[in-house]
Design a protein around this nucleic acid. Sequence first.
DNA 1: AGGCAGGCTTTTA
DNA 2: TAAAAGCCTGCC
Length: 313
Amino acid sequence: MRLRSLRRRISNMVLRIEDDLDIAKIAESGQCFRWEAIDPCLNISNEGGSEYKNAAASYDDAQENPVSYRVPVGQNRLYITDLGNDNYEIDCSDDEYESIWKPYLDLDISYRAIRKTADDGTDTFMKAACDDQQGIRILRQDPWETTVSFIISQNRNIPAIKKSIELLCEAAGDEIRDCRGEKFFAFPGPEKIAALSEEALDECKLGYRKDYVRRIAEDVCSGSVDLAEIERMNEDDAFKALTGIYGIGPKVASCINLFGLHHLNAFPIDTWIKRILAAEYPEGYPYEKYAPYNGIFQQYMFAYYRNNAISIK
DNA sequence: AGGCAGGCTTTTA
DNA sequence: TAAAAGCCTGCC
């Protein structure tokens, strides 16, 4: 349909992915904070994603759920459109897909198989969460960006987190033209954040987290914090190393393990998960059953509860 | 040693 | 006004 008109000098390709992949659910899952809903036809960003009356795809609930996003990853930005029927259009070459986007979307493993294997018919709550939230995947996000983002996330809701991260990118990130020639700000490296003035950092509205962000930027620059070394550790060792960093407690360390280091068994316990465990698993949560993918199932529960908080309560 | 109260910036609903 | 994908410090 009108998507044809989007074809430009850059090469578009249509992917067929016969596994869980729902980009709208991923965007709202709370693991990433810089996915931006855009109009697939007009190429105009639409913050919050309200209406998509002109959505080209034959996507069932395109009226409610955006079907097209742009996703900053390092120095690149991916444009992806859900065409429905397991088809997705992306703006990039085959090489870029294989080297960047395929690993980023964690497309080498089957989330559908993981869901089905764990379902023994006894956990009706988890089954409902999985059915409702299937399509979520755990992205392979940059460890530095993930670390700073989840330090910023503490004790705040998601709109506030997104705002601070965007302010930080505007203040310190490189301005880059994406594959469509549009400008965006990359997530700033530690040296860029460490170089910010006190006033510039104040404008990022980090609150008391400002000291945490500045200090980890300085410590990574000086070498007293070595994220590359932490990347090579197993989950337990990484957890210990992360919780030793100023501003990182058990919850944030678990999020970094899961979303930044891809330790899929990491199980972040935040205010939502506390409520879920108390309400749905009063006899105790069956960690063994969902190992080694506790983090994936945590995401299904988290998103399910957060998106249906009123109806489930 | 390990647990717990109090404080913390700012935004959001 | 309370709550928000919590953590640090100080006290016991």
